[in-house]
């Protein structure tokens, strides 16, 4: 009996699984997403002279709102219209959800090799590569919906993702270039002193990456692919009930994963803290620090919804190709210069 419990515990804290499912994987992502959506609604409400979700739990300021929304979605009828491609319609959002969380298996949350999910030297490239997978399935979902608005949304998603993933990757690589390593552990360790965060040494790349997170993860009002007043939720027009919840969830989880990477690359990861031996001191605490940093970045993104309006698709693409790609390339150059001068040597 104890053998089984031991086995289960071992399985749970087996780094790849632990990271994918618990921290900073699916479960943490859900908690953060629930917090962030609540925060987003409350922030917007605060700027907009009102209160926001409240009555569901007056003492917590309406924090349970998202739980209610999720539960309601979970038990609502799931409508699968007759005109859709059924298999893709159902399969694509689920695949997108799984793939959106997959990149975390390549992100080490500590510098103790025992707790690496997958020990490797190219974790930056692998994790960034994995982030590019899920958008394909959103386009597939849009196509399967057989709806004009969804089709337009899918096309926009494809355009935006192509443009901004490029920026994301260029600026991510420039972080690695400065340190002359594509191993996230090396990048984080190089940023150990506060003033050496790449955010400060290479703000250009950080800005480009921030912008690409903003645009490619479709946060309101930068959700050009699902612009509500233009194309009615775009790719997700036909989705209802839990399926829509999955779609919404995967969009936010994707943003969470992106911001995790952002905080690892630019905000020094677990920086002020040095992991100590032991599961809690060596793994949990640094991981929580990274998650908290990512949450803060997400919160700033949420704040921007109160200030900005939506861009037009051609303007967004124009901004990508004409402004942000040059900025990202400039960041790459700067990183090259830093590497040459040996800032992180």
């Amino acid at each position: 009996m104890t053998g089984i419990i031991d086995f289960i515990i071992k399985l749970i804290i087996w780094p790849p699984l632990f990271q994918l499912v618990l921290l900073p994987g699916l479960v943490t992502a859900l908690v953060v997403v629930i917090f962030i959506i609540w925060f987003e609604r409350k922030t917007a409400a605060r700027v907009q002279m009102r209160i926001g979700p409240y009555h569901i739990s007056p003492r917590l300021g309406g924090f349970l709102q998202l739980i209610a929304d999720l539960t309601r979605y979970a038990f609502q009828e799931i409508i699968v219209p007759r005109t859709v491609d059924r298999a893709v319609f159902i399969g694509a959002p689920l695949t997108a959800l799984v793939l959106s969380v997959v990149p975390v298996v390549a992100m080490p949350m500590t510098d103790i090799p025992r707790y690496f999910p997958i020990p490797m030297d190219y974790s930056l490239i692998i994790s960034m590569g994995l982030t590019t997978l899920s958008p394909i399935f959103i386009v597939a979902a849009a196509w399967a919906s057989n709806n004009k608005f969804a089709l337009i949304g899918g096309m926009r998603e494809a355009f935006v993702i192509t443009a901004y993933e490029l920026i994301f990757i260029i600026s991510g690589l420039s972080a690695g270039l400065a340190v002359l390593s594509y191993n996230i552990v090396d990048i984080v360790e190089a940023q150990a002193p506060f003033y050496k965060w790449i955010l400060f040494t290479n703000p250009i790349a950080a800005l480009a990456m921030y912008a690409s997170i903003l645009m490619s993860t479709s946060g309101f009002p930068f959700e050009i692919p699902e612009a509500e007043n233009e194309i009615v939720a775009g790719a997700f027009t036909e989705y209802s009930g839990l399926m829509y919840g999955v779609n919404m969830g995967s969009a936010y989880i994707k943003r969470f994963v992106y911001t995790l990477l952002f905080s690892l690359l630019f905000l020094g990861g677990w920086a002020p803290y040095t992991p100590q031996p032991g599961f809690i001191a060596g793994y949990l605490i640094p991981a929580v620090i990274v998650v908290v940093k990512a949450t803060i970045v997400m919160a700033t993104i949420s704040f921007l919804r109160a200030v900005y309006g939506r861009l037009r698709i051609d303007q967004a693409l124009d901004g990508a190709w004409r402004i942000f790609i040059p900025i990202a390339l400039a960041g790459l150059l700067l990183a090259l210069l830093e590497a040459y001068m040996g800032v992180y040597a």
Binding site: A44, Q48, M49, F220, N229, A306, Y308, G309, R310
Partner: peptide, 16 residues
Amino acid sequence: FGVFLGHSTMYMWPFG
């Protein structure tokens, strides 16, 4: 106008 441009604050302020 504000909400059509996805600017939610510009919806809430004038309405307030």
